[in-house]
Design a protein around this nucleic acid. Structure first.
Lengths: 140, 140
DNA sequence: AGTAATTTCTATCTTTATGGTAGAAAATAC
DNA sequence: GTATTTTCTACCATAAAGATAGAAATTACT
């Protein structure tokens, strides 16, 4: 049970953009992000596109174009990014769509998954990019 | 991010076996488990095999053969079953094998995943089958 | 205005994992 | 010994993941 490689790459890219956020007027080039964060350059294109559709970043084409965050780092969490790429975190099929299981409320396992999901979602929602940057600074 | 269908089926099968556990001398037939728990019968064979290799159940062939738990329900948790089928719960590649990521301790995201994993593992390890059965009884 | 440079975007391919099936192998009761 | 009932394993589709190259678009500069 893992997030996809794409989601991990997306997180790295967003972390890079969060670091660049203070430079308000600049836009980062995809190629630069790819190099810096060790992401296959041509693979990043697809990821950038998805993040843009999800409204997490703003893109602009052409010379001097590039990518930047659509919102402040404190308004973007790990959960936002992961769900934008991998879809909702369900842990098990029955969590987000109870109708797939005919046992319904009679299944004691169902509840465990629901609680586990809540716990996980809370943790990821709480991890906003401003906090991540602070934590990194504190370490160095 | 979900457990596989196989893992979910395995949990259902184990729940059934936990219910049957008091009948010490009987063994449940795979076909019976499949019917009762709504699992594709021929698919269950592969799952049973994996659970047996993992040491969670005992199998015996031939007439009057079948399957039963290898340990008491209170000594088997959801975590045991899920990891036996799907492998370790990592959430992200870097959690179980930090060497795949060259950023190492310099990555603030790494730590979040580690904590999230710990939290999730604790929850699943705590959910033993005796507790699950009790919870179900309490409901009815 | 034209063109070259730089960018995002999209159609395509390969590989891997998942979900599922059927038939072989094994063991026991009679 | 044989028939029955079981586990076990080799196989096959389908779908998703990972990755790539080239098309489309936009802008700066001459």
């Amino acid at each position: 049970m893992q997030i996809t490689r794409q989601a991990d790459y997306a997180l790295r890219a967003m972390l890079y953009l969060a670091r660049e956020y203070p430079k308000k007027d600049e836009r980062a080039a995809t190629s630069k992000i790819a190099e810096e964060q060790e992401i296959p350059a041509s693979f990043l294109a697809k990821i950038i596109s998805q993040l843009s559709i999800a409204g997490l970043i703003q893109t602009s084409r052409g010379a001097k174009g590039g990518v930047r965050l659509a919102r402040k780092p404190e308004e973007i969490s790990l959960l936002d990014v992961v769900e934008a790429i991998d879809g909702p975190i369900s842990l098990n099929e029955c969590v987000d769509d109870p109708s797939v299981c005919s046992f319904g409320d009679n299944c004691p396992i169902h509840e465990v998954w629901c609680e586990a999901k809540k716990q996980l979602v809370r943790k990821l929602r709480d991890a906003t990019f401003d906090k991540l940057l602070e934590q990194q600074k504190a370490k160095v």
